[in-house]
């Protein structure tokens, strides 16, 4: 199973890179090189456009993490999550997940070292990682790339999704493992 997924993910991109231009050129007579260049042109400006949005959100998140406020938040929430039996060790992962993807992976690695990847905590944080996203980053670049500053309900809806992901991960792991 694991080998299959690894092989599949290794093949997907090269197959797309050869398949799409080949089909376009051979079947649809598309000038594939010109067409590619035309599309690729846009990449640069999108990258530049998102800079201010990403700086704003990453600076705020960076300061928040460096101050140690995360520890306070974990301490404040611990009594609540303790009531339902959610492991306190997994709480920082759930809280950090929408803020920082690389930070979350670091925490997960630490937990794998301490408890092992096949422990309940190890499995739980794996599922949390797999069922949620770095919401703040996604919001900053998706809306930043088109200069949308008023996000309306995008953030609350996304965070509700993340919260559900964590709760569902806990329930599913409790049932399956």
């Amino acid at each position: 199973m694991k080998e299959f997924f690894q092989a599949a993910s290794n093949w997907v991109v090269p197959l797309l890179l050869v398949g799409i231009p080949l089909f376009a050129f051979a079947v649809k007579r598309v000038k594939v090189y010109e067409s590619f260049i035309e599309g690729a042109k846009e990449g640069f400006w999108i990258g530049v456009k998102i800079i201010p949005y990403l700086v704003a959100i990453l600076v705020a998140i960076g300061m928040f993490r460096a101050s140690g406020a995360m520890g306070l938040l974990v301490a404040a929430l611990r009594p609540v999550t303790g009531l339902i039996g959610f492991p306190p060790e997994a709480l920082p992962v759930a809280l950090l997940r929408p803020l920082s993807g690389s930070g979350t992976l670091g925490l997960i690695s630490d937990l794998f070292q301490t408890f092992g990847p096949d422990s309940f905590i190890g499995r739980l944080v794996s599922v949390i990682e797999g069922s949620t996203e770095t919401t703040f980053y996604v919001l900053a670049i998706y809306f930043g790339s088109i200069s949308v500053r008023k996000a309306r309900y995008a953030l609350p809806a996304s965070l509700l999704g993340d919260l559900t992901g964590v709760a569902a991960a806990f329930i599913v792991c409790s049932l399956l493992f």
Binding site: I20, A24, G39, A40
Partner: peptide, 10 residues
């Protein structure tokens, strides 16, 4: 985006 444009044109 380059690849996507090719796919679009096809």
């Amino acid at each position: 985006l380059g690849l996507m444009r090719v796919a679009q044109d096809a």
